[in-house]
């Protein structure tokens, strides 16, 4: 008998094993839902498949009675716009400040402790301040996402810049590079793929801040909708929304990974 660590599943077993946990979750849900509905057909907590499908159909393909909007489409567009703007701004600020902090000793001396302290502030705790300062509109929500993830991106990138072999920076100088040229030709190109990793890791918190801000003050958005539906115990809408949010988050992560692979092929060459 070989050791457990040396036993590897073949391709088919891998697929089946990967599908197993998902299948078990669906099975558990189906059984629990069936059991509850058998006791009380009006139970709202674990709706059956037909109820779920009806709700999905309603929010996706039937215009809303009040405004005539397709709710899922509207919520998705609004939320993705907030998330995209917030993450985009955070990327730009995080990249520029992170690279500067990692590369320039004077900026490092000035900012390192400050970024470390700021990154410890729980972003949700300053949400009231943001609402007071920026009002209940879009700005506060976007600023929350930015404030929440920028310190992490800065710290992560500054660290990656400092991890660049000192030899590379010396070599660039012997080739006549100025600080600007070192930044533009040596550091930035090697940091762009790191930025993508950093953003991928920030997406989880970004979603959290988005949904929290929408839950508290919004007129539309994925987070707003699930918290609105909670009042009516509409699990038939909440559950598909959660699944949809998960799918969106997963797709974003997948797209970023694909972008990294296509745009930075040097990272995947040879024996690295």
């Amino acid at each position: 008998m070989r050791r457990l660590i040396n036993q590897r599943p073949d391709v088919l077993s891998k697929l089946l094993l990967a599908a197993l946990p998902f299948f078990l979750v669906f099975l558990a849900y189906a059984l629990a839902s069936q059991a509850r509905l058998a006791l009380n057909p009006d139970d709202k907590l674990l709706p059956g498949w037909t109820t779920l499908m009806e709700a999905i159909n309603r929010v996706t393909f039937v215009p809303d009675l009040r405004e005539g909007d397709y709710l899922l489409l509207l919520d998705t567009t609004v939320s993705m716009e907030r998330l995209g703007t917030g993450v985009g701004i955070a990327m730009a600020i995080g990249f520029i400040v992170g690279v500067l902090q990692g590369l320039i000793p004077y900026i490092r001396a000035t900012l390192t402790n400050f970024t470390n302290v700021v990154s410890m502030i729980p972003a949700l705790a300053i949400l009231p301040i943001l609402f007071i300062t920026f009002g209940l509109g879009e700005t506060a929500k976007i600023v929350l996402i930015v404030v929440g993830i920028v310190p992490f991106i800065i710290r992560d990138l500054a660290q990656r810049v400092e991890e660049l072999p000192h030899e590379q920076i010396i070599k660039a100088q012997t080739l006549g590079a100025s600080t600007w040229q070192i930044a533009m030709r040596i550091v930035v190109p090697q940091m762009l793929p790191r930025l993508i990793d950093s953003v991928r890791m920030s997406l989880g918190p970004a979603w959290l801040y988005l949904i929290a801000a929408e839950a508290i003050a919004a007129e539309s958005g994925l987070g707003y909708r699930i918290f609105l539906m909670r009042r009516y115990l509409s699990m038939d809408v909440i559950l598909p929304y959660v699944a949809w949010i998960t799918f969106l988050a997963f797709s974003l992560d997948f797209l970023l990974r694909a972008l990294r692979r296509v745009a930075f092929r040097w990272m995947y060459r040879g024996h690295m």
Binding site: P165, E167, Q168, I170, K171, A172, T174, L175, G176, I186, P189, Q190, F264, W266, M267, M272
Partner: peptide, 15 residues
């Protein structure tokens, strides 16, 4: 630039 250098490793740029 009047002094070139070659280290044991990390002398060339991976990107």
């Amino acid at each position: 630039p009047d002094r070139g250098v070659v280290f044991q490793k990390y002398s060339v740029f991976p990107h």
